[in-house]
Nucleic acid binder design. Structure first.
Lengths: 332, 332
DNA sequence: GTTAGCAGTCTAAATGCAAGAGTGCTAAAA
DNA sequence: TTTTAGCACTCTTGCATTTAGACTGCTAAC
């Protein structure tokens, strides 16, 4: 439904006022600060109408208006001005990616840190590409009698993990690596898990080695999400409430909870905003930007902050970071 | 100063009551629950005396007594009963270390998780041994044209990290690895940093490679402390206060703040208790256990919880974990 | 369609009161 | 000298009441 110009102005005023102060706003204040040309009574009428539409709400009879989640959504979708980052901010972001990133983990961790620093909220990075990264080569190296190092090189970076394979000669390890490379080269990383059954049946000789390697890589993959800047959101006034703070931290510390939210909101390509995510976490918003790199590999970045956060800035930062990552990974 | 038997009993009663309830205790309650043989008036006199000595305090005229930090200290040092872990608890702890640990990181992370789970507080692990681990071998492997994998094997486990060394042949890498092994084998890990100047001067040919490797390993080493179970302490009632909660989380999220506390309290060998650590963090206690493994390498484990925590249990858990780690590392 | 004006509602802060908890002191008992 | 009973005193906590102030919603006039 299309709002009248004046209703748009008023909704915008309510949201922006709430964004900066966190307090409800009265009809009189709207008149004084945003719309001096009409009377507060007229604004009151409009407010009532916007409230009926579900964009605003009322805490009690004599309190000013605050936007509903719906109101926020309308704002970010239709009314919000875009914000351009300053040159300084852009170069600040880019400077975090000047040295070459060699492991998948590096990219995630670095991105998360960069985003969080740039917009002063917490940030999450989900590198969906991790599952679909294309395997290039698998090597196993001898470290000590029983400890071996498994290295999986992919088109997006390298994963290396120690594994305890027992006493196996380097010759055998080389062969095992060669065979695994033959089977998996060109396939996505996730195929390691998927084809576990087939492999262990087909290649009886190295069954034990394969299984250990698959377990090791799979285990390593458990930390799927990089989170940065948790401490940053603690200072926003909405988290003066202990329970809200606890909820926020528990969410950010828990990959299992975070993942569905991230995956869900990043269904489309591009920027998506989820306001009031999670049942108990009414006070958290997540702005996500999902991009494809190297063709079809998803890369989701997100800013996690209070519902009244600077959405415009968050979006700009995410776009900048995503573009930078894209540049890096596609260049190679 | 030695306390009379009765004063000891009363101090013990106040501390233990406070430990379990978190509330101040009155003279009458002490009489009923701990010392039925004397009147509450007598207890009141003793309480006054203990207060003068600095072990107890008073929130206001008509409130019961709570222990001071000094009182807690006296308690844990002289009055606390030792607590034996149940068989179940012991095997629970040991079961976390059954599969072989191959990297230094593994040991830290696993220990932290185990401790936190066993006593339901947050835990920190500082593997001082990391700096002094003896280097056994250094290898550099080719992953792609420019990306190489640096592997440093030590007596305590392996460190592997990706580095961008540019286009160098495997032959050269082998030689560089061989030379570095020759120089560093038998020396502590920290010598990599320490001898940076000497090396880069002595071995001009591989200077670039050496420096990159040293940087890489040093960078990796930045995360010196493993922290686990942050979310566990959030549910203790003392952290209903937002600021206390914030302080606790900020401390646990900040290695730079944590390290001096850990290093400091683990100056001696064995168990140490720091109550009310950090200026603003009056409500956190850290119980640390520091041990030497493989001769002279320090390994500090710690339990971080509210001041009124189950110290006896924490100590037992730390001892058990430390013993287990010692077994593992010394066996090899 | 817009506005002024006002009654009505709700909050938030201040005030006062009563009940209860626990101490500190005194004087008597052991 | 130590212990105890008893009581006055202090402070907290919870509750009810009041008051001032902030806004709205409605009505009637512009």
């Amino acid at each position: 439904m299309k709002l009248s110009k004046r209703k748009e102005k008023i909704l915008k005023a309510v949201v922006e006022s709430n964004l900066s102060s966190g307090e409800p706003i009265s009809s009189k204040a709207i008149q004084q600060e945003y719309l001096p040309d009409v009377s507060s009574a007229t604004i009151r009428n409009e407010l009532m109408s916007l409230e009926e539409m579900g964009y605003l709400t009322h805490l009690h009879t004599s309190s000013g208006r605050v936007p509903t989640t719906e109101g926020y959504r309308k704002y970010v979708q239709e009314l919000m001005p875009t914000k351009k980052l300053t040159k300084k901010e852009v170069s600040q972001i880019q400077s975090n990616f000047t040295d070459k990133l060699v492991s998948l983990n590096d990219i995630m961790v670095r991105s998360a840190k960069t985003i969080s620093d740039a917009c002063n909220y917490a940030s999450v990075v989900y590198f969906g590409a991790k599952d679909t990264a294309t395997i290039l080569q698998i090597k196993i190296m001898t470290i000590s009698d029983s400890t071996k190092l498994v290295v999986v090189a992919t088109d997006l970076g390298v994963i290396s993990e120690m594994a305890n394979l027992g006493e196996v000669s380097q010759t055998e390890l080389d062969e095992a690596g060669r065979i695994m490379t033959e089977i998996f080269a060109g396939k996505p990383l996730s195929s390691l898990e998927d084809q576990r059954y087939r492999i262990s049946k087909e290649l009886v000789k190295y069954k034990q080695i394969f299984e250990t390697i698959i377990d090791t890589i799979a285990k390593r993959d458990n930390t799927k999400i990089a989170v940065a800047g948790k401490e940053k959101i603690m200072d926003y006034p909405e988290f003066e409430d202990v329970n809200k703070l606890k909820n926020a931290i528990k969410l950010l510390d828990n990959d299992e909870k975070l993942l569905p939210i991230l995956k869900n909101s990043s269904s489309g390509d591009g920027v998506e905003i989820s306001i009031s995510v999670g049942g108990a976490n009414d006070d958290l918003s997540i702005v996500t930007a999902t991009y494809k790199i190297k063709g079809d590999k998803t890369f989701s970045t997100g800013v996690v902050g209070p519902v009244r956060m600077d959405y415009a800035k968050a979006i700009s930062v995410l776009k900048e970071v995503s573009d930078t990552i894209k540049d890096i990974t596609d260049k190679e």
